[in-house]
């Protein structure tokens, strides 16, 4: 009678078990990295003041640049100085307990310490002004911030997410004068004319996907 197991069966079994264990670990790591638990997409953080973008940007219709004024001229959009909050709140809601930290910040000349929700690693050199000047609207990366009562990151900011645009930048481009517009729901309806618009803008702005996907565009 022939033997059921060959001499190498033990080794193969061990190899298979090892591979199964490795696949399990990989699946857990990859799952963690891509899910909300790892990327904290949609997670709000404790802030010194429960600031509502929905109220300020949505209901009141204040332009993003009223507070994030550096976005057009610098790499950072910038956190507004306490002085900017007090432009209105020196007169409105002057006794609100919720705003006590803002008044204290002004009185003591100490900045409010906001917790950043849209974070990039230090080895990524993102430039806000470059994106805004070419017409990438705020909503593309920050989501419908005008609908967020408390602010949370809208995207994972994983490298493949950045590259999706950098490989094919045309469809992400909008008129630069309308970068702070939040609702673009009608934009994709006119497919053909906007395909032409995308191609034209890429040409006019000298946007070259080959250059945009070089490592040193984002990593120096």
């Amino acid at each position: 009678m022939a033997q059921i197991f060959t001499a190498s069966a033990d080794t193969r079994l061990r190899a298979m078990l090892l591979m199964a264990a490795a696949a399990l670990v990989l699946a857990i790591v990859a799952g963690y990295a891509s899910q909300g638990y790892g990327t904290v997409v949609g997670w709000v953080r404790d802030q010194p003041v429960p600031f509502s973008h929905r109220h300020h940007a949505g209901d009141l219709g204040i332009d993003c640049r009223y507070c994030h004024g550096a976005v057009e001229t610098s790499s950072r959009a910038g956190f507004p100085a306490t002085h900017v909050c007090m432009t209105c709140h020196s007169q409105i809601w002057t006794n609100a307990g919720m705003l006590a930290p803002v008044r204290l910040s002004l009185a003591q000349d100490k900045p409010l310490i906001w917790q950043r929700v849209s974070k990039l690693p230090d080895y990524v050199y993102f430039n806000h002004s470059a994106h805004v000047a070419k017409g990438v609207p705020c909503v593309t990366c920050h989501g419908r911030i005008d609908r967020m009562p408390l602010t949370a990151a809208a995207h994972s900011f994983h490298m493949n997410w950045c590259l999706d645009c950098h490989r094919n930048p045309g469809p992400a481009l909008r008129p630069p004068g309308e970068v702070t517009r939040m609702d673009w729901s009608g934009w994709d309806d006119s497919v053909e004319s906007h395909r032409q618009y995308a191609a034209l803008r890429v040409r006019v702005e000298h946007i070259d996907p080959v250059k945009l996907t070089q490592c040193n565009v984002c990593h120096r």
Binding site: L60, G61, I92
Partner: peptide
């Protein structure tokens, strides 16, 4: 960006912020 919240789109002073108490 900077003026309409108070001064309004036409400059008549009827912006959103004065309607909220400014």
């Amino acid at each position: 960006i900077y003026c309409t919240p108070c001064h309004g789109l036409t400059g008549d002073g009827h912006g959103r912020i004065p309607s909220r108490g400014f």
